[in-house]
Nucleic acid binder design. Structure first.
Lengths: 115, 115
DNA sequence: CGCGTACACAACTAAATGGTTGTGCAACGG
DNA sequence: CCGTTGCACAACCATTTAGTTGTGTACGCG
């Protein structure tokens, strides 16, 4: 693609969440910090592949990394998730309003057609 | 990529949301149903490209389409957004718990080191 | 020191993504 | 009936993505 010049934050977050492996990594991290190898262990996938996934999560700022000796433990960063949750919540509200009206409309039709 | 065999629902939804153009389309639709051309108008992009974006949104079941004469109006479908919101909400809760404990821990350290 | 462990970087690849242009086609309006 | 409108399908292309293998390197340990 000719491509968007600046991939915005929200796109990074949603993009990071749009992969089962990465969501599984986040779920694993929710139960406690972990090293790359610990994260890689449950998956039928190379350590390098997991490393790449972690980098995606880092770019989206969903995880932070520290440098502890030879290990590079991963920890969750919730800030960006709030942005995603915020967007969805905002739009769910609008959706919901519209659907309430739609429900009314349908109810109205039913009332006329199924007396 | 060798690829996930079955791209699950959540991935489709997050994937659909991971694009500014598609989010803009959803925002436009939140203000009322629209035809493809109406949706395409604000963008410096061909009608066909918008058509593709809409198809992505349809696959994620974020929009529904009806066939009204020669027009194919688009309308929002909130069901899947709930799934995404649910996932985030669930994990935000876990994150928050962890951060509360972290805050406690930090507070505890401060208490000892900065009397 | 020399080895193992834990990880990252590089190069390669297949497939998906996001765009283009060109074309077809169904429906309405004169 | 014929042109215009509204949209989808197809072929093509560049870029990104998600994986691979191979290799390098920093750190801790005996």
């Amino acid at each position: 693609m000719v491509g968007s010049v600046t991939t915005d934050e929200l796109s990074l977050v949603f993009g990071a969440l749009a992969d089962p492996t990465r969501r599984a990594i986040l779920e694993r991290l929710a139960r406690g910090d972990a090293t790359v190898n610990q994260l890689a262990e449950p998956f039928a996938m190379s350590q390098q592949a997991i490393s790449k996934h972690i980098k995606v999560l880092e770019k989206a700022r969903l995880v932070r990394r520290t440098r502890a000796a030879q290990a590079r433990p991963c920890a969750l960063d919730a800030v960006r998730l709030d942005a995603a949750a915020g967007w969805i919540a905002e739009h769910r509200r609008i959706w919901a309003d519209r659907y309430d009206r739609l429900d009314e409309h349908i109810a109205h039709l039913r009332e006329r057609n199924e007396p």
